[in-house]
């Protein structure tokens, strides 16, 4: 990568791609842990174990808005960067970044 602007583009789009995945994973983790709680309840688990699992769920829930906020911030950084560097529009990196931005937007809306 000879052009430092392309290098920055690859870095920024990589960040957004990973944060998109992260936000998705945290949301999915909440569902997984809630399902685990239902199973524990069905199995007649001790009250203490149920409370502990509630704690686990609260921790997972806590991570979702934090992750979303970080994604939103980096989404805006990348969006602005793409707008500022229009002359790179024909490059593979730019097209890939635009795709990543679209996926991120979809994840932010969930």
């Amino acid at each position: 990568m000879t052009d430092p602007r392309i290098r920055q583009l690859v870095i920024k789009s990589g960040v957004v791609r990973r944060l998109t995945r992260e936000k998705y994973c945290y949301a999915k983790e909440v569902l997984t842990e809630q399902a685990r709680l239902e199973k524990l309840r069905g199995d007649g688990a001790d009250d203490h174990v149920l409370r502990k699992q509630e704690e686990v769920i609260q921790e997972c829930i806590m991570m979702v808005p934090d992750s979303k906020r970080r994604l939103q911030k980096e989404y805006e950084v990348l969006e602005k960067y793409l707008a500022d560097e229009q002359d790179l529009i024909e490059t593979d990196s730019y097209k890939k970044a635009a795709e990543i931005l679209k996926d991120a937007k979809a994840e932010l809306e969930t």
Binding site: E33, R36, K52, Q53, E55, V56, E59, M62, M63, D66
Partner: peptide, 13 residues
């Protein structure tokens, strides 16, 4: 599976 702090970021937080 199944415990608190099940991720680096949660440990960090």
């Amino acid at each position: 599976p199944g415990q608190l702090n099940a991720g680096l970021r949660k440990i960090y937080v």
